[in-house]
Amino acid sequence: SASTSTPAAPAPALTQESLQQRLQALIEGARESWTYAIFWQSSYDYSATTVLGWGDGYYKGEEDKGKAMSKASSSSLAEKEHRKKVLRELNSMISGSTAPADDAVDEEVTDTEWFFLVSMTQSFINGSGLPGQAFFDSTPVWVSGPDRLASSMCERARQAQVFGLQTMVCIPSANGVVELGSTELITQSSDLMNKVRVLFNFN
């Protein structure tokens, strides 16, 4: 049960700044090693269909950077160059500069970094995907293990497995869904779900 002796105080208004702080607090304060956290925010499109779109995300990365790089190196040379090119373009767009990018931008883009970046372009309608399913059913979805991710009905979960993630979790809140992913095998924890309920209990 998520009940505690004292009810959680209402959280402050939802802003991207406060979202970022909550996602960071969730990951940095967890016992488990999560690679990233994303908040998928609910809204309605012109036909009153519920859409979950990018709210904000916090990327921590893998504990073992060497492991991440060795995984990234399994991608083809063409894929590596494509990622670098996209990152350079995104960097130019953000910095507003056409000057050559610094060395950091040209560093190899790992699989989980790429998965996180691509996530910014995604959305889920009518209960689709793991985030949509969690929101639609108001029930957390916890998928742990490469085999379970690979055999998921959700394309995003299958993609996650290809990019080296072993655990993907979607926990619904009032205004959306908190998704966490890890390259480690992490078993279900009520502690994490309670933290999400407290941190993302905004109106």
């Binding site: 991207q16 970022q20 990018w54 904000d56 995300g57 990327y59 990365g61 950077k65 996209v86 990152l87 995104l90 960097n91 767009m93 953000i94 610094d102 060395d103 950091a104 931008v105 560093e107 970094e113 996180f116 970046l117 691509v118 910014m120 372009t121």
Partner: peptide, 26 residues
């Protein structure tokens, strides 16, 4: 990769900045 909507630029800018820090500290 499709273009990133304006609303997501803050997330992207933060990701790129933190990535730069990670690479520098590696």
């Amino acid at each position: 990769m499709p273009s990133i909507p304006q609303a997501r630029k803050a997330s992207l800018a933060r990701f790129l900045e933190k990535r730069k820090e990670r690479v520098m500290n590696a």
